[in-house]
Structure formats: structure tokens, C-alpha cells
Design a protein around this nucleic acid. Structure first.
Lengths: 132, 132
DNA sequence: GTAGGAGCTGGAGCGCACTCCAGGTCAAGT
DNA sequence: ACTTGACCTGGAGTGCGCTCCAGCTCCTAC
């Protein structure tokens, strides 16, 4: 089973332009072409794109994704380094989740404070002070 | 108590250039100046900067922070709209945390798979297929 | 046989959020 | 008096990750 670029775009959630861009910069291997020179993506390509979008969603910079992609191309001997990249990235993601959660608490606090203002406690100085 | 720009930078974790930039684009009110024209930040300014960095950390785009800052300047009448902005932003942050957690599971899976390869199961086709 | 639509290429352009720079002022220390 | 260093301004430059465009080739449907 193969897929035209529009289908690959739809499946991956990336734009057609982005797919070609990823190819240009070496994030994805150049796919096969049909007789007319049009790209034919395989299921394997789609799986790789799906994984790439996970990395992107979690904020991995493109140059690191590229390093990973290059290692992958070189085969199994690079598995150790690839694992290491993922381990570091996972730690990074965990840190960022923790950071976001901490910020959420501040948001909750602010929102509660606005609710307090709405509840007619506006006159209370400490509420105003905090209302930012 | 007032603070020179270098102190405000250190306290907020933003660079001096970024502080001036935030002022230019209307994210922070122009602070008072000393006789020589140097900025003097107040505790209130630092608190606002601290909150801004939370918004930034959670990915709020600058133009929305700016809208919030402008509303804040207009006083209490805008509290409703400000609360609404924060509510929407909180929902957004929660969505992104959930998304990150989902991606973490994929990372865990990949990492486990590399561990399996290391454990010498390399010959097993399904391990290789999945190793990406 | 022709109109429409998907895809192709190389390259330019964009929005965001800073970051850096030149050239200047000012105040304090030695 | 002079050096040092923090700070000032306006404006240009940067890196990232796309996104858009002109001008082209194909295939398909009518």
C-alpha cells in the first residue's frame, strides 16, 4: 500500500509543504516515486512521520530530530545513541510537564481571585492587590 | 524598594534586552526612572514580570499577553475579560499537558524497545520492525 | 483535445520572540 | 582627571519552523 503526498499529509497532520520540507532537510528519506515523478509514501514512512510528530509535539528541535533520523539511517549500530537521545528527551519532557503543572497552580490562583472579585469582595484590599 | 534593570533581569530570569523589549511592545508599563534616566523597577513590577513568565512558559503568545496587559491597565472593569482569557489559557495548558503525557507513553515504548534490542533480542523481527 | 486538478522544483517570504549592536550618557571609584 | 562599567536609544539581525509562490509537467474526465 502506498500513499500520495496529500494522503500522507492528512494522515500525519502535517501540510504537504511541510512533508517536502522535512524531506529536503533530511528528516525523512526521499520516498519512492511513481512513473510521473510523484511521491509514494509507504506505511513505514507514515509510521516514521507519526513518530516524528510526537517528537515535534514534545518540543524536540528539528536539528535533534535530524540527528536521530541520520542515526536511524545508519542502522542498528547506532541504537545506543538513539536510545540515549530519547532518554534525554523524555527527561526533558517530564521536566516541562512538571513546569506546566506548577504554572497551572498559579493560573488557578489567579482565576480564583477573579472569582472572588466577581463575588463582590472587590473592596477587600488584599483581593485587589493580588488581582494583577 | 526599587531594582535596577540588571536586578529585575536576574529576578525574572529574563534578559535585560528582553525586559526593554517587553516594555517597547507594551507588555510591561514603563517603569519609573532615576535622575540619570535609568529604569527603577518596583516589587509590583517584579511580581507582574513573574506572572508574565508563567504565561510565557505555558506558551501564551505575546499578542495575547499584550491584550491581557492592556486590559489590566484599564482597571477592574476588564476583570471579566481577563478571567476569560485565563480560563481559556488554562484549558489550553491542560490539553497540552495531556498531549505531552500521551507522547511520553510513545517515548517509553520506544525506549523499552531499545532496551529489548540491547538485551540481545535483536534477531526477533518484530523488535527490529518497531525500532525505527 | 482541452480543462482541471494534483503534484513537481527552487527559492523567496513570514511570524515569532528575542538578541545584538553602535554610539552615546552618567556616576562612582582611584 | 580618568577609567570603568552600568545603562540608555533606535534600529538591524537572528534562528526556527514552516509557508507560499511561479511556472512547470502529468493524468483524468468530459
Amino acid at each position: 500500500m502506498t500513499y500520495a503526498i496529500a494522503q500522507a499529509a492528512e494522515h500525519s497532520g502535517l501540510s504537504i509543504d511541510t512533508l517536502r520540507y522535512y524531506e529536503r532537510i533530511g528528516l525523512v528519506d526521499p520516498p519512492a516515486r511513481d512513473a510521473a515523478g510523484r511521491r509514494l509514501y509507504t506505511d513505514g514512512d507514515l509510521a516514521w512521520l507519526e513518530f516524528l510528530t510526537k517528537l515535534r509535539t514534545t518540543g524536540m528541535p528539528i536539528r535533534l530530530m535530524r540527528e536521530y533520523a541520520q542515526l536511524r539511517r545508519k542502522g542498528e549500530a547506532t541504537a545506543g545513541r538513539r536510545k540515549q537521545i530519547l532518554l534525554e528527551h523524555r527527561a526533558d519532557v517530564r521536566r516541562r510537564i512538571a513546569e506546566l503543572k506548577a504554572c497551572l497552580e498559579v493560573l488557578d490562583f489567579k482565576i480564583d481571585n477573579y472569582a472572588a472579585i466577581e463575588a463582590g469582595l472587590t473592596g477587600k484590599t488584599h483581593v485587589q492587590e493580588v488581582s494583577a
